[in-house]
Amino acid sequence: MNVLVEGPHWMGEWSEIVCAALQNLGHTTRLHYHNVKPLAYRLHRCLGPLQRLVGNTPADLPAWSNRQLLQMAAAGPLDVLISIQGKIDAATLRQLRIMHPRLRVVFWFGDVLFDRALPRITAVYDDVDQVLISYRGDCERLQRDLGPKVTYFPFGVSSAFHRLGPLSPVEKKRYSVDVAFVGTRYPERDQILTAIAASPDLDLAIWGRSWRKSRQLHSRGRLSMPDSLKVHHLAKISLNIHHHLTNNGFNMKFYEIPSVGGFQICEWQPELAAMGLEDKVATFRQPGELPDLLRYYLTHDEERRRLAERCAAHVWEHCTYEQRFANLVGL
């Protein structure tokens, strides 16, 4: 099939991972980044009051993105559009269906359901064929509220991207830490990690953005996805603290950590049992449990290694993106 992927240009390489999985399944893909500002857009914005002189041009980035998407769709055959965190709107979808009457449209919303998320999903629901949601609790809610087009579609591992390359001596020294956290600062995460850092016997290293807002914690910098995999591979423990709005499901990091043999500790959720992972992942139910849990696993190397190996084997056998997309209706 000819598949057009509309998605973000982002350090986590989500859009590229999707294209690689589809290509491995034999599909032809094209990729459109909906958050990249083209030169023409930037020039247009610089014109300020003179914008009216250049004629009828879109006023914002989503409108520019949708116009570019239509141009790409007109350039060749198209069977499936996959919109990832899409900026696409109903009017654009209807134009696409005029161009390609048999077009199948899949809208994938992978974030937790922020307040601004639901209006975006409902705005396109009638004009798409399937809505993919990556957290089971949110999926079940939307199935009740919107209807049967909503499908549970968790994240996974990528054979093309979640592989570890050679590690230099400098990288081994830089990323070999006892306890690592890689991720964006949220107030809830800050509070949990500050409590851990207060224990003098626990060596915590943080990478990620927005940590300048923290009063006590400091980030060692932002990481590309390949570099974050190096941290997960070399750290004795990778903490995976989900967003506080997470509703029974797992973020991308949940799969990235075991993909390179890393050991993670994350929140307990019922979905662990549904996935057959409850005996392969170390979990906590209350943040106050973390200091003692970290001390335990830092002193039980063999148990830590055994859990990491079992989790890695499971995700590579059952949770690849190729498997996810092969089971998707219409692909």
Rank of each mutant, 00 (worst) to 15 (best):
M1S: 14
M1Q: 10
V3C: 14
L4R: 08
L4H: 07
V5Q: 11
E6G: 06
H9T: 01
H9V: 05
G12C: 07
V18P: 11
C19E: 08
C19P: 08
A20D: 11
A20N: 04
N24F: 02
L25Y: 01
T28L: 11
R30N: 10
H32F: 09
N35W: 06
V36D: 00
A40N: 11
Y41W: 11
R42F: 00
H44V: 00
C46Y: 01
L50G: 12
Q51I: 00
R52K: 14
L53G: 08
N56D: 13
A59N: 10
A59P: 05
L61R: 11
P62R: 12
S65E: 03
N66C: 15
R67T: 07
L69D: 00
A75V: 04
L78D: 05
L78Q: 05
V80Y: 02
V80S: 08
L81D: 06
I84D: 05
Q85M: 10
A91Y: 04
T92K: 11
I98P: 03
M99K: 11
R102P: 02
V106D: 01
G110N: 06
G110M: 02
V112T: 13
D115S: 15
I121A: 05
T122E: 09
A123S: 15
V124I: 15
D127T: 10
V131G: 06
I133L: 09
S134Y: 06
S134W: 01
C139P: 10
D145T: 13
L146E: 00
K149E: 00
V150R: 02
Y152T: 11
Y152A: 12
P154Y: 02
V157A: 13
S158A: 13
S159E: 13
S159G: 15
F161T: 04
G165N: 08
P166V: 10
P166A: 15
P166F: 02
E171N: 10
V177G: 06
D178G: 12
A180Q: 02
F181C: 13
V182A: 09
Y186F: 11
P187Q: 04
P187E: 00
E188A: 14
A198P: 02
D201C: 13
A205E: 05
A205D: 07
G208V: 09
Q216T: 15
L217P: 03
L217F: 01
R222C: 04
L223G: 12
P226Y: 03
D227Q: 15
L229V: 09
V231L: 08
H233R: 14
L234V: 09
I237R: 02
I237T: 02
L239G: 10
L239C: 03
H242P: 12
H243W: 04
H243E: 02
H243Y: 03
H244D: 03
N251L: 07
N251T: 09
K253C: 11
Y255S: 12
I257G: 14
P258D: 04
G262R: 07
C266R: 03
Q269P: 12
Q269I: 02
A274W: 05
P287R: 00
D292T: 12
D292C: 08
Y296E: 01
Y297I: 11
L298C: 13
L298I: 09
L298W: 07
H300N: 14
D301R: 00
E302T: 15
E302D: 09
E303K: 13
R305L: 14
R305P: 10
R306P: 00
H314V: 10
E317I: 04
C319Q: 14
T320L: 13
Y321G: 06
A326F: 05
G330N: 06
L331H: 08
